[in-house]
Design a protein around this nucleic acid. Structure first.
Length: 274
DNA sequence: GGCCGTGTTGTTAA
DNA sequence: TTTAACAACACGGC
């Protein structure tokens, strides 16, 4: 489920441990996880030094020297874990990096195997296939730009906020949480939002994301920080996963509907349609 | 044992 | 232009 706050949590932890470290070897147990040509990928990563780690939307970008990059998408159940070589390798661990000057290995684990790694000789996000079509980050775009983009779009608000080419980093949980805090119904047509409402939504999204980052993300089932511990923002969800429970604002039961094929939680009283 | 639902997103078809 | 369905895969819950 990693969305922006979970990916940011992972990136911050990885930066602390991995920047400046040299990759001694890489072991690939499940080749289909690697989207770039395998021999080239192994050759590029081996002996490379990790010089920076960034988050681009929900993607993780590891920058290397000699110049190259490794993009990682965790999709639904991917994990990047820092574990000692003594930690048993379970059947869902697909890639292991051994570092030159660290007890810890970096391991990619993914129960459903939807996630992937992509090695590239490019280091600029605008040149990397999976990154170049991503929309702006909620923390970089201005409220005015955000409102303008939404005003140009047709259709229900929630699917637009989930569309990574419109704005990058939001997923199912944080869209539901943000719309609740904003008091906006998820089926509201984007082009019927007043410019004022659209502008109001932007800082609310940032607030929800910032709070979630402070809580190290939400752990529903699979999400783990690289040290294996869980996030805690799930304890502060107002609507997500609370179908039938009382709204913490007004007491009426939270409803769950399907919007764009996705489970969608909202309060019918606090988020009235139109 | 079988069916349903699950956090993501690319592709395909309508 | 937008949307819906499906696929990738594994597992938990009923």
């Amino acid at each position: 489920m990693p969305e922006l706050p979970e990916v940011e949590t992972i990136v911050r932890a990885l930066r602390l441990h991995l920047i400046g470290k040299k990759i001694r070897s890489i072991e690939v147990m499940t080749p289909k996880i690697i989207r770039s040509p395998l021999p080239l990928t192994v050759r590029t990563l081996k002996q490379a030094t990790i010089i920076d780690i960034k988050r681009i939307g929900k993607m993780i970008l590891i920058l290397l020297d000699p110049p190259a990059s490794l993009a990682v998408h965790l999709k639904m159940t991917g994990q990047l874990l820092l574990q000692t070589s003594e930690t048993p390798v379970d059947k869902h661990t697909h890639v292991i990096w051994t570092l030159a000057s660290s007890e810890k290995q970096l391991r990619y684990r993914d129960v459903r195997k939807f996630g992937f790694l992509l090695c590239s000789s490019e280091t600029a996000p605008s040149e990397i296939p999976c990154l170049k079509d991503l929309g702006p980050d909620p923390f970089e775009i201005s409220a005015a730009q955000f409102a303008r983009v939404l005003g140009q779009k047709k259709g229900a608000l929630k699917p637009l906020l989930l569309d990574q080419t419109v704005i990058s980093g939001l997923g199912n949980i944080y869209v539901d949480e943000s719309l609740h805090l904003a008091g906006i119904h998820p089926l509201t047509k984007a082009d019927t939002l007043s410019p004022l409402e659209a502008r109001k939504l932007h800082p609310i999204i940032r607030k929800v994301l910032r709070r979630a980052i402070r809580s190290k993300g939400s752990t529903l089932r699979d999400f783990r920080r690289p040290d294996g511990t869980a996030g805690s923002y799930q304890n502060r969800h107002q609507v997500y996963g609370r179908e039938g429970d009382p709204c913490l604002t007004c007491g009426r039961p939270i409803k769950k509907i399907r919007v764009g094929g996705r489970g969608t939680h909202f309060c019918p009283a606090c988020q009235r349609k139109e």
